[in-house]
Write a protein that binds this DNA or RNA. Structure first.
Ligand SMILES: [Mn+2]
Ligand SMILES: [Mn+2]
Ligand SMILES: [Mn+2]
Ligand SMILES: [Mn+2]
Lengths: 218, 218
DNA sequence: TTAATTTTTTAGACTTATCTAAATTTTTTA
DNA sequence: TAAAAAATTTAGATAAGTCTAAAAAATTAA
């Protein structure tokens, strides 16, 4: 069994671990968990004690198989609940993250399985993030972002890298929702902004926005 | 704001307070909260500090308006989630209590309102218990139990006083689900058991069962 | 390659919720 | 109404998770 706090630490380690480095630093964890480095050191020692992480002093931590299972399971619950909130309770995609942060810690395997069935076995959450299956398998294929596209390339928006409500609201206002087909009309060297065509209308998009939108061709 | 633990204490005080006494004792709380009397004493002092309860040493506690609001709000959430689990996720009525014990602590007013709407504003939970409305109003009218009926009286089962899964499973096996019309055919002085007619079939029911089934005439 | 800076850990303290054992108060019994 | 029993509170500890301040280690810069 794992607590609310432990699940949040494991999830954070998972997310940082997938940003490239194989050892996640104390400081980076402290930052995304809104806590202090000294608290993180204490906590990761306890997680190592329970065999959820490997901990090397002054180097960092990474997940054991046991820790990975909990982290992915928690993310699976988070994303399934987000689908429920948006598709069944009519929440907007920028309103669900905080609530899902609580719901993800409800522990009942049966509940998750039935929720998943009720929702029709969704593959992605409202932000385009893949939902791990019951065995912990996760699809990973969102490698390109809008700013990677060349002039005249066409693509479809499939996800967001940044999840801040303000960003999601911006996308909604500018018709840049998931599933939208876009074409790059122009790119500017100066500030890396680009002009995209959305439903026949041209729009200027900043680099800040373009690098946070996942796209696929066709 | 109130924590998981505080909400459980307030809910317990509410339930015990509605069993007659105006002051709820330390020991009775310790029993239903599966904790020790000394822990309860510590906790109720903190609750009094926050103005959730009135506390009189050696006498007991009762809820303030603030405490009552939290208690009823928590019960409201619990029962709405139970409806969701049974009606939407196809859980059986004896499987939902433990999960609802966790879900009831998710704090988002918006979530509760939308869940209630999604469920079609149910008035009762799967065990026949009334769901408090958004203003904290609760319907209370389950005064009679099966054992109160006289011979030849007819009634409909509308709720259970005991919520143990084993009792609920017993009722299911014996066709004594909510909404069932029954008629008392005989009553035995000796052990207070009674014979009831259910869908044309006669069944013997123990006093233990009969006193835990809420009924209404007509 | 020493000095300065940054990162990480340790030490000691605090809060919440719990426990056991002992003390105190209330209730019951004789 | 005094003694016995039961209920309740207090005292002192513990575990989880957090903090600040200080020490130690690692990294970067001169
Ligand atoms: Mn989210
Ligand atoms: Mn999401
Ligand atoms: Mn219940
Ligand atoms: Mn119920």
């Amino acid at each position: 069994m794992s607590t609310f706090t432990e699940e949040n630490y494991l999830k954070a380690i998972y997310k940082l671990g997938h940003r490239g480095e194989d050892w996640v630093s104390t400081n980076s964890l402290a930052e995304i968990l809104n806590t202090k480095a000294s608290s993180v050191t204490d906590m990761v020692k306890k997680l190592a004690e329970k065999d959820f992480v490997n901990y090397k002093p002054y180097t960092g931590v990474n997940l054991t198989a046991k820790g990975l299972e909990i982290a992915v399971g928690t993310i699976r619950k988070h994303r399934l609940w987000e689908v429920f909130l948006v598709e069944r309770l009519d929440f907007k995609w920028d309103e669900v993250h905080e609530i899902a942060e609580e719901l993800e810690h409800i522990n009942s395997d049966e509940l998750v399985l039935r929720l998943e069935k009720f929702l029709g076995y969704p593959k992605y959450d409202p932000h385009g993030d893949p939902i791990p299956d019951r065995n912990g398998k996760v699809l990973h294929h969102k490698n390109r972002v809008l700013s990677d596209l060349k002039i005249n390339e066409e693509a479809i928006i499939v996800g967001v890298k940044e999840h801040a409500p303000s960003f999601l609201q911006y996308l909604e206002k500018h018709n840049l929702l998931l599933g939208t087909r876009i074409k790059v009309r122009n790119k500017f060297e100066f500030d890396h902004s680009l002009v995209v065509e959305v439903k026949g209308i041209e729009n200027t998009v900043s680099h800040q926005v373009a690098k946070n939108l996942y796209v696929v061709n066709e």
